[in-house]
């Protein structure tokens, strides 16, 4: 967890747990690991699934044009974006 993106343990655990449930290997995955081809290797449908898992768990959504952007993020960047989205919608989800 070298970059210190400041994502919470809860969000990190959610992301890694989701990837595990989606049958991706998370061995060696940390905040610096890209979600896309150079890292976890999520493809279009798995990014979509991550999106619906976020919506089900936290009640916030990433729009379709943002979903493409998620594929270019690292785990840490995604966690930070998710944390910001949750903070901006405090009533959502819980």
């Amino acid at each position: 967890m070298s970059t210190g993106t400041g994502i919470t343990d809860e969000i990190r655990a959610f992301v890694l747990g989701s990837l595990t449930e989606m049958n991706y290997s998370v061995a060696g995955v940390d905040d610096d690991t890209p979600l896309g081809p150079a890292g976890v290797d999520l493809e279009s449908l798995s990014l979509a699934e991550l999106g619906i898992r976020v919506e089900e768990r936290f009640g916030v959504m990433f729009e379709e044009d943002e979903a493409e952007l998620l594929g270019t993020m690292t785990v840490g960047e995604f966690g930070a974006a998710l944390a910001a989205r949750i903070a901006a919608a405090p009533a959502a989800g819980q």
Partner: peptide, 9 residues
């Protein structure tokens, strides 16, 4: 689980 239970796959 409703709508969000349906897999994109």
């Amino acid at each position: 689980r409703g709508r969000l239970g349906v897999s994109p796959y």
